[in-house]
């Protein structure tokens, strides 16, 4: 049995990641809560998308709405990538599930303090909620055994800029704070979530051939992402960074190479805003704070996804 808490700026790939956790067949997964944060799309849209995804899977999970903008900077969105509703323009019906009253940050603090070291955290968006929670309750850093972060680009190949990955770029101050908070972190960077790790034409065909509500949903809500990825980054088919991170959180052996290093986040420069700088050789002689995933087993990651869609 595994207990997890998901923090998400729910758009298309977040939705698939949530679906994976909700439908993981290998062991019982208890999702303690889902907190939403502004990122891919507006906070309200993220929340709506999270609720819709839970409803689609026929499950009940408490959803708490969190930060409506980054700590200090103006919001940056990813509509161009995820579509006007964050779900490929599918315009899914309004969910009937409702959010909880508590603010995401308070809900997270209360849940962790009531269950210290009982569940892991998986973050799929900007780290604003986590930074706020750690700021109000610094003791959380020692009450979470691991936080899996979809974010950053350890090999410095960014997406939103040459240097930075979107989630970290959106709220670099929050990321920097979280990275240096003492919270145990595993970083799943953008560089792992492209190329061969993408679902290619054949993969998409086989997903659609499963002919389930879930397989169809996975392709449908990502249709804008597929198109934009091809036009914008010139990459084939569908990148799924959040589901890859979720796969590693659910089955850590999917990450085949990792190391722990001093990692910090640039918040000063315009050129490298949000760059995750990994001191791989230890030249700064600072304490290692982040476990960086360097490689994943691509066939096993895809199988991890497929078994939740069948």
């Amino acid at each position: 049995m595994k207990r997890i808490w998901i923090d998400t700026d729910t758009a298309s790939d977040d939705a698939v990641a949530i679906l994976m956790a909700l439908r993981w067949p290998d062991e019982e997964i208890i999702i303690e809560g889902i907190t939403t944060v502004s990122g891919n799309v507006s906070l309200e849209e993220c929340t709506r998308n999270a609720l819709y995804t839970i409803e689609l899977c026929g499950k009940q999970v408490p959803v708490y709405q969190g930060a409506g903008k980054p700590l200090v900077r103006e919001a940056v969105f990813g509509y161009f990538f995820h579509g006007p509703d964050g779900m490929g323009g599918m315009n899914y019906p309004s969910p009937k599930l409702e959010i909880e009253e508590n603010h995401a940050v308070n809900a997270l603090i209360d849940a962790i303090r009531a269950n210290p070291n009982e569940f892991i955290l998986v973050t799929l968006g900007p780290l604003t909620n986590i930074a706020l929670a750690l700021s109000i309750a610094p003791d959380l850093a020692e009450k979470i055994p691991m936080c899996y972060v979809m974010g950053g680009a350890a090999a410095t190949l960014g997406n939103i800029t040459p240097a930075a990955e979107f989630n970290i770029y959106v709220d670099p101050e929050a990321a920097k704070m979280v990275f240096h908070s003492g919270l145990p972190l595993t970083m799943v960077g953008w560089e792992l979530c492209r190329g061969e790790a993408n679902l290619d034409d054949e993969d998409i065909k086989s997903v659609l051939a499963m002919d389930t509500v879930y397989s169809k949903f996975t392709v449908d809500c990502n249709r804008q992402a597929i198109q934009t990825n091809r036009e914008w980054l010139g990459e084939p088919m569908l990148p799924l960074p959040d589901p890859i991170t979720m796969a590693i959180a659910l089955d850590s052996s999917i990450c085949t190479k990792k190391g722990k290093y001093y990692v910090t986040v640039d918040v000063e420069s315009e050129v490298t805003r949000g760059m995750t700088v990994v001191d791989e050789r230890g030249v700064l002689e600072k304490d290692a704070n982040v476990t960086v995933c360097w490689a994943i087993d691509v066939p096993r990651w895809k199988e991890a996804l497929y078994k939740t869609l069948r």
């Binding site: 700590l71 200090v72 930074a131 706020l132 700021s135 109000i136 610094p138 101050e173 929050a174 920097k176 704070m177 240096h180 918040v267």
Partner: peptide, 9 residues
């Protein structure tokens, strides 16, 4: 309240 700044160490 807070024992340290939000972002700064």
């Amino acid at each position: 309240g807070a024992d340290q700044a939000i972002v700064l160490p």
